[in-house]
Design a protein around this nucleic acid. Structure first.
Lengths: 232, 232
DNA sequence: GTCTTCAATTGATATTTGTCAAGGACTCTC
DNA sequence: GAGAGTCCTTGACAAATATCAATTGAAGAC
C-alpha cells in the first residue's frame, strides 16, 4: 500500500467503530488512486463496483438528462460517496468528476456488502450515515420547491457564513457557475441574484462575499433549521 | 391489542427478518390509532417520538416554509414513514396529514433505536430501506432540476401507466392540486400542462387519463430508468 | 508586458411559471 | 331540484427564469 490512507478512512464515522479485523478485510482489497482535475470518476448508470472515499481534492456529483446537466453536491475530504448504490448493489444515480487533483480510495462494493452483512457496528454506522444523507437531500428538496432562486442564494450565503464562524467576509467555496447549478439556476441568473441581494447588504467582489448585516439578509432569507442546518 | 395489525407490520421488508423476540419487543409498546381525514399526524420540527406505519388509508407528507406549502410524497398501505428522523433521534423534516380515514400504527422511536442497536438483521433491513428512500429522493431531485413541468408531468403519467400494467386508460391516483404540488407546480399550470400534452395523445376527463400512443408521449418525456424506475 | 482563454457579467428578449379573478363542473345536502 | 361547497379550468396579466449575444474582467502562457 503506498501510504497510510488507512488512518484517514478509519477516522470517518462510517468506519471508526467497526472491528479492526473487518476494517482490515475492507482495506485489503482497497486501493488509492490519484486523479487529475476534470476526470469523470463514475458515470450514472454504471454498476456500483466501488465505494469511493475522497482523501484529498474535490469531487462534484452531478446528473445528466437530455443534454442538460445539474450539480447535486460537492464533496471535500474526507467523505465517502455512492454509499446507497453500493449497499443496494444498484447502478449509480449520479456521475462524479474531480474538480481538482484528487486522491480517491476505492473499496470494492462486494467487500463493503460482505462486511456489512457480518459486522453489526458497521451496519449501524451505515444506517446513521444514510439517514443523514437522506435528510440532507430532503432539505435540499424543500429548499428547491419552497424558495425562489433569490431566497435560495440568500440562505446559501448565510449557511456559508455560519460555516466560517460568522465572519463578515468570506470566500465562496465554489466556482460561480457550479454554485448556480447547485442552486438550480443559470449562471446569468446567479449574477442577477447577487445584484438583487445588494439592497440587503451583500457585497460581491469576485469570489469574496461581504455580508454587512446578517439580520438584514435574514429578513429576506428566513433561514430555517429544518432546511438549512446541516446537523438537524 | 385491538387486532392483529402485527401481521401487516411484520410483512414489511423492514420487519420481516428480525428475530421474533425483538419484533415482539417492538410491538409491545406499539399501538394502533384510527384517524379521520385531514388530521395532521405530525408537524415538522416535532421530536420524532414514533415510527409510523400506514396500515390503511392514505397519508400526505408535506413541508411548509414562509406560508408556502409543498407535498413531498404520498404514502399508501403498508409503508412506514419518518424512519430517518427516528433513527437519528432528530426532529421531523416533514409534516404528515391523513388524506382519508386511516389506521396508523405508532411504534415508539426509542424502542426502534434500542432494537436497532442489538438486532443486526433489523439494522440491515433499515439500511436497505434507507438506501432505497435516499435513492428515491435523489431521483425526484433530478426530475425537478433537469426537467420542465411539462416533462415532469409527461413522465409522471408514463410511470403511472406502468404501475397499472400499461393500460391505455387509467385513473390518476391523486387529487389534481396535490399532484401539482408533488410535481412542483401550481394547479393552474397543471391544467395547462395537461392541455400541452394533448398533441402527444394524452386525453383527460376528470381524473381519467387516456394515453393514445405511449411511444408518442415518450418522445417528449424521454423517461430514464435512473429517474423514473422505482426499483433501480 | 501582451496575448489567450475562460469565467463572469450585462442587456435584450423569449419562455416558463405564477397570480388573480372569474366561471364551470361536480358532489353533497336538504 | 335548488343551493352550497369544492375543485378544476380558463383568461389576462405579472413575475421569475432562461436564452442568446456581446462585453468585461481576471489568470495563466509566452
Amino acid at each position: 500500500m503506498p501510504d497510510t490512507f488507512f488512518e484517514d478512512v478509519r477516522s470517518l464515522h462510517l468506519f471508526s467503530k467497526m472491528s479492526a479485523d473487518n476494517f482490515a478485510d475492507l482495506m485489503r482489497a482497497a486501493y488509492v488512486q490519484n486523479f487529475p482535475p476534470q476526470i469523470e470518476l463514475i458515470s450514472e448508470g454504471d454498476p456500483s463496483d466501488f465505494l469511493h472515499v475522497v482523501l484529498s481534492g474535490e469531487v462534484d456529483l452531478f446528473a445528466r438528462w437530455n443534454n442538460r446537466e445539474t450539480s447535486l453536491a460537492t464533496l471535500r475530504p474526507v467523505s465517502t460517496f455512492i454509499l446507497a448504490a453500493t449497499i443496494r448493489d444498484a447502478p449509480y444515480l449520479m456521475s462524479a468528476r474531480t474538480l481538482e487533483k484528487s486522491r480517491i480510495a476505492l473499496i470494492p462494493s462486494q467487500d463493503v456488502r460482505a462486511v456489512f452483512d457480518t459486522d453489526g457496528d458497521f451496519a449501524r454506522a451505515i444506517v446513521a450515515e444514510l439517514a443523514l444523507a437522506y435528510r440532507s437531500v430532503v432539505k435540499t428538496q424543500k429548499d428547491l420547491k419552497l424558495r425562489s432562486s433569490l431566497e435560495r442564494l440568500a440562505n446559501c450565503l448565510l449557511r456559508q457564513q455560519t460555516r466560517v464562524d460568522g465572519a463578515e467576509e468570506f470566500t465562496l467555496p465554489y466556482e460561480k457557475r457550479r454554485l448556480a447549478s447547485l442552486l438550480g439556476m443559470t449562471p446569468e441568473n446567479l449574477s442577477r441574484a447577487f445584484k438583487g441581494l445588494q439592497p440587503y447588504g451583500v457585497r460581491v467582489a469576485g469570489s469574496q462575499i461581504t455580508i454587512a448585516d446578517r439580520k438584514d439578509l435574514e429578513s429576506l432569507a428566513k433561514p430555517s433549521p429544518l432546511i438549512d442546518d446541516f446537523l438537524v
